[in-house]
Structures are given as structure tokens and as C-alpha cells.
């Protein structure tokens, strides 16, 4: 009779342990996801201007470049060289 009760108690402890571990895992996963969502909000909610520019392979089109292009067309040969030189110097900026 007492042996049976002991076995029964062991089975119950094992059952409870399973649920406790499962609960801890669930809470851990939730904490990780909550942290990830707060990180994601900080990182992805910065809208960069690069994302808004229309890009053609090899060149970038934007409002100001188009204005400079108009000026280029109206410039003399000497002035065009100044623009070309300036563009070359500021290519990486």
C-alpha cells in the first residue's frame, strides 16, 4: 500500500517538474521575443533617405542632381569642366 503511494507521489513530482520546465521555457521565449521586438522598433523605424531614392545601376537620380544637370546643359565648356571636376572630387561623399 505504502509502496504504491510512493510510486504515485514520484509520478506526480515528475509531472509537476515537466510543467514547471515547460512554463520556464515559455516565459524565456516570451522575454526573448519582447526584447527582439523592442530592438526591431528601434532599428527599423528610422527612415533613411537612401530608401527613397530611385536608383539606376551605376547612377543615382535625385531632385538636386537633376537641377545640376539642367545647369550643366546651360553652361559653357569651361564651366562644364568645373562641374565634372567637382563631381569627381565629391564622388564618395
Amino acid at each position: 500500500m505504502s509502496n504504491r503511494r510512493l510510486k504515485n507521489n514520484k509520478a506526480q513530482v515528475s509531472d509537476i517538474m515537466t510543467w514547471v520546465v515547460a512554463t520556464i521555457i515559455i516565459i524565456l521565449i516570451l522575454v526573448v521575443f519582447i526584447y527582439a521586438s523592442s530592438l526591431l522598433a528601434q532599428k527599423t523605424k528610422i527612415i533613411k533617405i537612401k530608401e527613397m531614392k530611385l536608383e539606376i545601376p551605376g547612377e543615382e537620380i535625385n531632385w538636386l542632381n537633376s537641377k545640376t544637370s539642367f545647369a550643366y546643359l546651360r553652361s559653357s565648356e569651361e564651366q562644364r569642366q568645373i562641374i565634372d571636376k567637382w563631381k569627381e572630387e565629391n564622388k564618395n561623399e
Binding site: 519582447i34 521586438s37 523592442s38 522598433a41 523605424k45 528610422i46 527612415i47 527613397m52
Partner: peptide, 17 residues
């Protein structure tokens, strides 16, 4: 609920644009 609140409560930073 917390995840949703955390994500959508954060404003978009559009100052560069």
C-alpha cells in the same frame, strides 16, 4: 500584447527624410 505595444509605440524617425 507587450510586443505589439513596444513596436507600435515607437515613433518613426523621419527627420532625415
Amino acid at each position: 500584447f507587450t510586443m505589439t505595444i513596444l513596436f507600435y509605440n515607437h515613433p518613426y524617425d523621419v527627420r532625415e527624410v
